[in-house]
Structures are given as structure tokens and as C-alpha cells.
């Protein structure tokens, strides 16, 4: 029984691993931290897996547990995120097809998102994943109204950040 459970888990996780990678991309700024967070999320998912009864999709459930892990961990560590380290991150952005202005803007946006706090990052993540406010609220355990308010505040922050840079 347990071996089957474990096998199922490992298989599902491998198939859905991009969810975790994407969360790591927002919460960490170098590849070592990325790997550490990936492992921590994996362990937390595995611990929580017996409670996952399959009434939701694995991915939906994984969103919730993984984001909570990232938020909790991030809260414990220092909030200062060095912007210099962002350069290491550039491997995430493919070079071709972008004109340089757009590319610069995207870089700046990632940089800006890295400055946000733990919950705000989670909201941005859900937004980038094309989730609607109902799902965002449910996953993060906040009300829909609250999610909207928070999202608007984030947009404002990002705009200010952008105008400050230029």
C-alpha cells in the first residue's frame, strides 16, 4: 500500500514539477536556493499527501501546499532580496525574439516582483498562472474581495517601481 502511495506521489510530482519550479522562480534568486526550495516543497507535499484524497486535481492541491511552504519559509528568512543577484536569473529569459526594450522591461518586472513580500508573490504567481480570483482566494485562504484589493495594491506597487526606475 505504502509503496503504491509513494509511487503515485513521485509520478504525479514529476509530471507536475513545473508548478514547483515556477514558484521557486518567484521566491528565489539563484539556482542553489531554487533547488533548496524545490526540495523543501517536495517534502512538505509528501507529508501532506496522505490527506490528499483526490477530490481535487493534484495540481490544484499542489498549488496550495507549495505556496504555503514558500510563504512560510520566506517569512522565516530575511526579507531583503538583493537585486544584484537578479543577473543570475537571466537564464530564465530566453534571448531570442525579444527586442531589447521589451526584454529590459521583463527583466525589470522580475526584479520588481522579487521585491514584493511573500503573500504578494503568491498572488502574482496565481495571476501569472491565469487563475481567477475565486481560485486565488481559495488557494491562499483569503476572501475574494481581499484578493482583489491585494492585487490592485500590487499593481500599484509595480507601477511605482517602474516609474521610479525610468
Amino acid at each position: 500500500m505504502s509503496e503504491n502511495l509513494e509511487k503515485t506521489f513521485v509520478q504525479q510530482l514529476r509530471e507536475n514539477q513545473n508548478i514547483i519550479h515556477k514558484i521557486c522562480r518567484l521566491y528565489t534568486s539563484d539556482s542553489d536556493a531554487h533547488k533548496d526550495l524545490f526540495q523543501e516543497i517536495t517534502i512538505q507535499l509528501w507529508k501532506a499527501f496522505p490527506k490528499f484524497r483526490g477530490d481535487a486535481k493534484f495540481s490544484t492541491w499542489a498549488y496550495r501546499v507549495a505556496l504555503n511552504t514558500a510563504i512560510t519559509l520566506y517569512r522565516k528568512s530575511t526579507r531583503s532580496v538583493s537585486t544584484v543577484e537578479y543577473e543570475k536569473h537571466s537564464f530564465f529569459i530566453s534571448q531570442d525574439e525579444y527586442n531589447s526594450e521589451e526584454e529590459d522591461q521583463i527583466k525589470l518586472m522580475y526584479q520588481a516582483v522579487h521585491q514584493l513580500n511573500d503573500i504578494e508573490k503568491a498572488l502574482v504567481f496565481m495571476y501569472l498562472e491565469d487563475k481567477d480570483y475565486t481560485e486565488i482566494a481559495e488557494t491562499l485562504g483569503i476572501s475574494e474581495v481581499n484578493a482583489r484589493v491585494k492585487m490592485n495594491r500590487i499593481k500599484g506597487k509595480l507601477k511605482r517601481w517602474k516609474s521610479w526606475i525610468y
Binding site: Q17, I93, S94, L128, K159
Partner: peptide, 16 residues
Amino acid sequence: ELDLLKKDWKKNENSF
């Protein structure tokens, strides 16, 4: 701004 990011986000989805 965020939509620009979203475009890039989707594009790099399988780059991990």
C-alpha cells in the same frame, strides 16, 4: 506590466 510578464512566463514554462 504584469501581462508582459505573463507572456514571458508562459514562454518559459518548460525551460526548467
